[in-house]
Structure formats: structure tokens, C-alpha cells
Design a protein around this nucleic acid. Structure first.
Length: 769
DNA sequence: GTCCATTAAT
């Protein structure tokens, strides 16, 4: 955050700028403040415990309005309840009306009322009005300054808050503990711990550290920046922990999965301490249950919510609903959603991202069919949202774009792109990165580039996303060029950027460049290479057939399942079976976790008729209890999605599809296609067994055939597949693209294959089954 | 009489 002045630098060391040393002018005794705060917190606790005494007198707005209407001479204090009400309803126009009235009655020069008005304007989002009033006030005090500072943070302009704070110090005013607390919150919003630490220092100097609200702000500051240990230290140092102290710490724990258990034990400590949780606390505890994926506990918390009567509170319902979604209990989540008569955009977002997130969980659990249907649900909810009165925000757009990426739903993605432009959300960095990612995953590098060029803001993630797009789409030179452009633009690459660049070099066989970038990463950017970086280097040598170079023992990393698999596949396709078997042995020592890895090995051993090894691999597969490899593909045509299994016979146009494939394979044979005798992917499901004598078709070939039949000539065909393509499908679809003169995109579990004119963007050196 | 801390979604 270059725009934020450091206290230590601005005004020649701010330590000197705050005239703390003058003992006669020290701010109010911190002890007195602490007393006041803790007595307030006690009465608050008594309210929460069901005590009858309310610490706040109800505001008599009616009475005040009546007096104003009658044109009575008013005391300035009469405006205060009115202003409170304006702030509560966030009504800017009401605030201006009251302000106008104040000018008429000549009350506008009262510092106290004006300060309240500054606060009210800020709460209505009218920063300019607040600042103008502040500048016109004949007299201001520390409270007025504080209202301005907290107001800017409230309106998402924490940089301005810091500027005003510095302005205040330069004007020789003393901050109060409210001011410092406000500053700590500005630092939290800026994620600027360094600045926050300096404010923390002043807090200690002023003896205000033991004030509860101060400790609360400190917890928040450190927790938000991910520094949980400092947050806990600050938490422990709060002598009078109140409801908010506990809630702050519990909610912080809910954001860091390593602290979930601690969060729960804090919740219990809080109850033991006799502090009654409120809806804020229970929302955070519910979100702890979500991170823990603990529905039983969640139900207990739900019961607690009923007990204290906050079960209809929107955040409480949102977090409960989200927990059910994360556990896959969509019916219950939907029921909660439908019975909510008051929703907010976060409700919709929780539904969309709940479905989207669960889709991804299902996907890794290899239940692709379920995953798809969750993806569709997410898209449907997004459509419902657009028909409702609510407006999507940046969370909505980034979630739904990730759903489109996953589903390869280019058309919906394009519509959402248009919507982000219309609503101005494209300027958000997360949204625009999600957009580049969407076009990449949908196989349209042209649109990704166009979106990138037109973007108002680019970040590390956007650049990296497009670099990786070029690399995956088989445009290594552009990837490398873009990487250089990125450095030229002054954006610092991270370890993921280097994976993309190295994989581009690997694709193009640019050994010298790869080694140069590898060194650049280590020396210029001080990024320690990890297994993925070594993997790119090894892939490069494998592609080039320099197998000995690929096997050279490198220090600093242990080859993983992916690397040994790639070596097995690479050595095999270069015909070096000795090395292939060696790599296979190393792979087996790792006890691989992926079904595909075993199928790769099975295929190799079967093709070399090493039956002993075949039996051994099958036995291992049983031991590891990995289940069978299910082969599934999807194609979207005009908003409708078609699903295929291997040798699927359930489709309406089944006969046409098989006929078309037969014709294409015949023609392909005439231009050099040789069927590649592959084993079945694994024990196939019973209904997937081909009729004896007929050709076996994996799911993607059937999906491609449907695309050829059902889309207009020249249209791109987009298919997604749940597992890695096999060699036979790869080589045949390559020729289909030439014979039918179509661009065919198949995104499998490992990468994107863009077939065009008989070639594939992967360069044929992907680890195929 | 004016300013004060906590919640759900990428």
C-alpha cells in the first residue's frame, strides 16, 4: 500500500508529532475510561442474560418531531435523537433535511450536534457532505476528527482515514482512545499490520491498551492479516473480555482452518465465563461448524439460536444454510432458503457458492454426475437471482464464473461477462481474473486475451492466469512474451507464474530458456523451486526424448506420483521400455493414490504381456480400495447438456452416432490412423460393456460425434471429460478435426486438448492413458 | 448531548 503514509515517516517521525510528553495535557485518564467501558459491558451482559435493566434510554423521536414542527425554540440537543434515526435508516435525504432545519434555527454552529451530523452523513455514505461540514465547522474537537476518521473506514476508504489522522496530528490535536481504535480498524481494512503496530505502540504509550474495545480492535487487526498468534496474544491481554472480544476471536478462528478447534474451545470458555453469545457469535460458531464439516454440532448450534431467539437473523440463517450445503444436504438448505422472507445478496451468494463448492468436492470424490447437477443448480440459482430484486455483486460474479469454468459453459460465461461490464464489477481484480480463467477453461484463448486487454486493472493473478492459458493452449512463445511484458510492467511473478513459464518452455523444448528462468526464479526472485517446477524441467527432457537428462538426480525434491507417471508415459512413448519399467517400479513404491496411475501401469504391462506385473497391479488396486475408473463426458448444445458413458447406448440418436463414428474411423484409417489396442480403462460397469465384436468407444468420442451431428458446420465443439483421455481417442479425434474441418476441444482431468487440422495443442506429449 | 469493538459468500 504505497499510498498509505507510514506514521514513522510522515511529518518527520510521527512519534514526535504526537505531543505525548506534555504531562499537563495528557488525554483523559485511561483508568477512568476503562471503568466506564467495563461498567457498560457489565450492563450489556446483564441485558444479554435477560436482565430487565436497559442501559440505554429509548429515544423519543416523536416528541422531538412535534417540537420542531411547532417551530419552538429548540435546544440543539433535540436534534440528536433525530440524527440517530437518520443514521439508523441510512437516509441521506432525511439527514440533509435535518441539517437544513438546523441552519434555519441557527443551531448549525453547535459543535456537538455538528459532530453527530458528521457521523450521520458518514453512516449514510455521504463522505463529501461529511467532509464539507467538517471544513465549515467553526470549531472542532477530537470527537469530530474521530467521527471523520471512522467514517472513511466505514465507507471503504481507509486510506483517507489514515490521511485524516495524519492531518489531525499535524494540526496538533490529541487522539483519544476512540481515535486510536478507529485507526486500528482502518489498518485492519488496509491489511496493514505495520501501520497497525505503530498505532498499537501509541495505544501502549497512552495507557489505553487495557481498554476492552481497544483490545478488540487489536485482535481484529492481527487476525485479519492472518497473524493468529499475535491476535491471541492481544486477546489474552484484554483484562475485561466482553461479548465482542470473544466473538472477534471466535470469528477469526473460523477463517483459519488450523484454528477451528481452538475457536470451539474459546466458545466453551466464553459460556463458562458466563458471557451469553449473541447472533454474531452464533454465526461465527456456525461457520466453525462449516469449516469442520460438522453437521451434528451445527444442529446443536441451531438449537441454541432458537433458544435465544435469533434463528431468523439473516446472517445466522445464511451460515446455517451454507453449512447444510457444504455437507451436501441440499434439500434442507433449499428449505431454509425458501422460507426466508428477508434475504440479502449474501444469502444468494452462499447458495451459489455452496452449490459450486460442493460440485468441486463431488468432483474430487469422482462423483462427476452429482458434481454436474450441483453446477447446474448454481447456474439456475444465478438466473433466479437475476429475476429477483437483488443485484449480484463481486462475490456472485466470481463464484458463478468459476462454475462456468468448471462446466465449460462458454455461452453463460459470455453473458455473465457482459453483465460484469454493465454493472461495473469487471473492475474488481478477483472478478476479472475469474473471467480470464473462465475463457481459458472453456478453451477460448482468443476471448481470454481480449478480456485481458480490455481490463481496467491487472494483477499478478490476471497475468499468471493468461500466461498459463497460453501455455496450456499450446502457444509457448506468447506465454514467454507475456511473462516478459509482465515483468516490464513491474508486476512481481510468484511461484505459480514460474510454473506456467517453465511449462511453456517445456512445451516448446526451449532448454536454455527454461534453465535461465529456473535460475531467475531462485536468484532474482528468491523463490525456492518446488516439485512442480522440477516437474516442468523433467517433462521438457521427456518431450525432447532426452530421457537420461530427465532421470538425472536433482537435489532438493522427491519426485511425486505425477512426475513418475509422466516418466513412465514418456519413456513408453519413446520406446525405452527399460527406463519405463524402472520408473514404474519407483512409482509403485510410492503406493499411488490415483486410479488413473494404476490404469497407466496396467496398460503398459498388458501391452508388453507382462502378466505377472498385471496381476500384481490389480492386486494392489484391490488393496488400496480405489474403486473403478468411470469414464464420463459432457457436451453442451444450445443450453442443453448431454452426458455419455463409455459405449453408451441410451441416447436417442444412438444409431446415428455409432454410424458416424464408424465412417469417420474408416476414413481416418485411410490417412494413417491405426487403432491403438488399449485395455479397457478398468473393470467396466456391466451396462458399459460393448456388444461383442463392435468397436469400443470411450465417452468423449460419443460426445464429439453428437457435437458433429447437432451443431452447424464450422462451430467449435466443446467436450469435458472426467478422467484422462486415452491414446486411441486422442489420435482418432485429432483426425476427426481434420476430416470434419472442425475445432474440437476436449478438456480432460489433466489438461486441455484443442484439436484443429489434425493436430492437438498438447503437442502429443501429454501423459495419456 | 457528539466518536467506540463482533457475523454469513470469492
Amino acid at each position: 500500500m504505497a499510498s498509505v503514509p507510514s506514521l514513522a515517516v510522515s511529518g518527520g517521525a510521527a512519534a514526535a508529532a504526537i505531543p505525548v510528553a506534555d504531562a499537563r495535557r495528557l488525554p483523559p485518564s485511561s483508568v477512568a475510561i476503562a471503568d466506564k467501558v467495563s461498567s457498560y459491558s457489565r450492563s450489556l451482559q446483564s441485558v444479554n442474560k435477560g436482565g430487565s435493566e436497559s442501559p440505554l434510554r429509548p429515544l423519543d423521536v416523536e416528541e422531538a418531531m412535534g417540537m420542531l414542527r411547532e417551530g419552538k425554540t429548540v435546544q440543539s440537543a433535540i436534534y440528536v435523537p433525530l440524527l440517530h434515526q437518520c443514521a439508523e435508516s441510512g437516509s441521506h435525504s432525511a439527514a440533509r433535511a435535518v441539517h437544513g432545519h438546523m441552519v434555519k434555527t441557527g443551531t448549525d454552529a453547535d459543535m456537538f450536534v455538528d459532530t453527530s451530523l458528521v457521523n450521520v452523513y458518514m453512516r449514510c455514505g455521504a463522505c463529501e457532505d461529511a467532509r464539507r461540514l467538517f471544513d465549515e465547522m467553526p470549531e472542532t474537537n477530537v470527537v469530530t476528527w474521530t467521527a471523520l476518521i471512522t467514517g472513511y473506514t466505514l465507507n471503504s476508504q481507509p486510506e483517507l482515514a489514515v490521511e485524516v489522522f495524519v492531518e489531525m496530528l499535524e494540526a496538533g490535536r490529541y487522539p483519544s482512545h476512540f481515535t486510536l481504535g478507529g485507526m486500528l480498524n482502518s489498518c485492519s481494512s488496509l491489511y496493514n499490520v505495520e501501520l497497525g503496530k505503530q498505532v498499537h505502540g501509541y495505544t501502549i504509550k497512552y495507557g489505553a491498551e487495557s481498554i476492552t474495545s481497544m483490545g478488540n480492535s487489536l485482535c481484529r487487526l492481527y487476525a485479519k492479516a492472518g497473524n493468529m498468534e499475535s491476535a491471541l496474544r492481544a486477546f489474552r491481554r484484554v483484562p475485561d473480555k466482553n461479548l465482542i472480544t470473544w466473538t472477534t476471536m471466535i470469528s477469526a478462528c473460523a477463517e483459519d482452518e488450523n484454528y477451528v478447534e481452538l475457536g470451539l474451545s474459546l466458545f466453551l470458555d466464553m459460556l463458562m465465563d458466563g458471557v451469553m453469545p449473541n447472533e454474531f457469535t452464533l454465526t461465527s460458531v456456525m461457520s466453525l461448524c462449516g469449516t469442520r464439516l460438522d453437521l451434528n454440532l451445527g444442529k446443536q448450534v441451531q438449537a441454541f439460536c432458537f433458544k435465544i431467539g435469533c434463528q431468523t437473523n439473516i446472517p445466522v440463517k445464511n451460515s446455517t444454510m451454507y453449512l447444510y450445503l457444504r455437507k451436501g444436504e441440499t434439500e434442507e438448505a433449499m428449505r431454509l432458503f425458501e422460507e426466508m422472507d428477508d434475504v440479502c445478496i449474501i444469502t444468494w451468494n452462499a447458495m451459489i457458492s455452496g452449490y459450486a463448492g460442493y460440485a468441486q468436492i463431488m468432483d474430487t470424490a469422482k462423483d462427476d454426475l452429482h458434481a454436474r447437477s450441483r453446477g447446474f443448480q448454481a447456474l439456475k440459482i444465478f438466473r433466479d437471482l437475476n429475476r429477483s430484486a437483488m443485484k449480484p455483486d463481486l462475490f456472485t460474479f466470481s463464484s458463478i464464473l468459476s462454475v462456468c469454468s468448471y462446466m465449460m459453459a462458454l455461452e453463460q460465461g459470455e453473458q455473465i461477462h457482459a453483465q460484469t461490464i454493465k454493472t461495473g464489477f469487471l473492475s474488481d481484480v478477483v472478478v476479472n481474473s475469474a473471467l480470464v480463467n473462465m475463457y481459458n477453461k472453456c478453451g477460448s484463448i482468443e476471448d481470454a486475451t481480449k478480456a485481458f486487454v480490455e481490463m481496467p486493472i491487472r494483477t499478478l493473478v490476471t497475468w499468471t492466469s493468461l500466461i498459463s492459458g497460453y501455455s496450456q493452449h499450446g502457444h509457448p512463445q506468447q506465454a514467454i512474451q507475456l511473462f516478459e511484458d509482465m515483468r516490464f510492467a513491474g508486476v512481481r511473478p510468484n511461484e505459480i507464474t514460474f510454473v506456467s513459464v517453465l511449462s511453456a518452455c517445456s512445451y516448446a523444448g526451449l532448454v536454455n530458456e527454461a534453465e535461465r528462468y529456473f535460475d531467475m526464479m531462485k536468484h532474482d526472485y528468491k523463490i525456492e523451486p518446488v516439485v512442480d517446477h522440477y516437474g516442468c524441467m523433467i517433462d521438457m527432457f521427456v518431450r525432447l526424448g532426452r530421457l537420461e537428462d530427465a532421470f538425472i538426480k536433482r537435489t532438493g525434491f522427491e519426485p511425486n506420483e505425477a512426475i513418475w507417471s509422466s516418466l513412465v508415459a514418456g519413456c513408453r512413448s519413446h520406446g525405452n521400455m527399460e527406463l519405463a519399467f524402472y520408473a514404474a517400479d519407483r512409482l509403485l513404491e510410492l503406493k499411488p493414490k490415483g486410479v488413473e496411475t494404476y490404469v497407466l501401469l496396467l496398460n503398459m504391462y498388458i501391452s508388453k504381456e507382462r502378466w505377472h506385473d498385471v496381476a500384481m497391479v490389480r492386486k494392489l488396486m484391490k488393496q488400496e480400495d480405489l474403486g473403478i475408473l468411470r469414464d464420463r463426458s459432457w457436451i453442451t448444445i444450445k443450453d442443453k447438456v448431454y452426458f455419455f458413458r463409455a459405449n453408451d447406448k441410451t441416447h436417442d440418436q444412438c444409431d446415428d452416432l455409432y454410424q458416424l463414428l464408424e465412417n469417420l474411423l474408416e476414413k481416418a484409417k485411410m490417412i494413417g490412423y491405426e487403432p491403438y489396442q488399449n485395455v479397457e480403462l478398468s473393470e467396466t460397469e456391466d451396462d458399459e460393456k460393448p456388444a461383442s465384436g463392435s468397436v469400443k468407444h470411450h465417452s468423449e468420442r460419443l460426445a464429439v460425434a453428437l457435437g458433429l451431428l447437432e451443431t452447424p458446420p464450422g462451430a467449435t465443439i466443446r467436450v469435458t471429460k472426467n478422467i484422462t483421455m486415452c491414446r486411441d481417442c486422442h489420435s482418432s479425434i485429432k483426425l476427426f478435426s481434420l476430416l470434419a474441418n472442425r475445432e474440437i476441444i476436449v478438456r480432460d482431468s489433466k489438461r486441455l486438448h484443442k484439436f484443429r487440422d489434425g493436430r492437438c495443442s498438447c503437442g502429443d506429449f501429454s501423459a495419456l492413458l
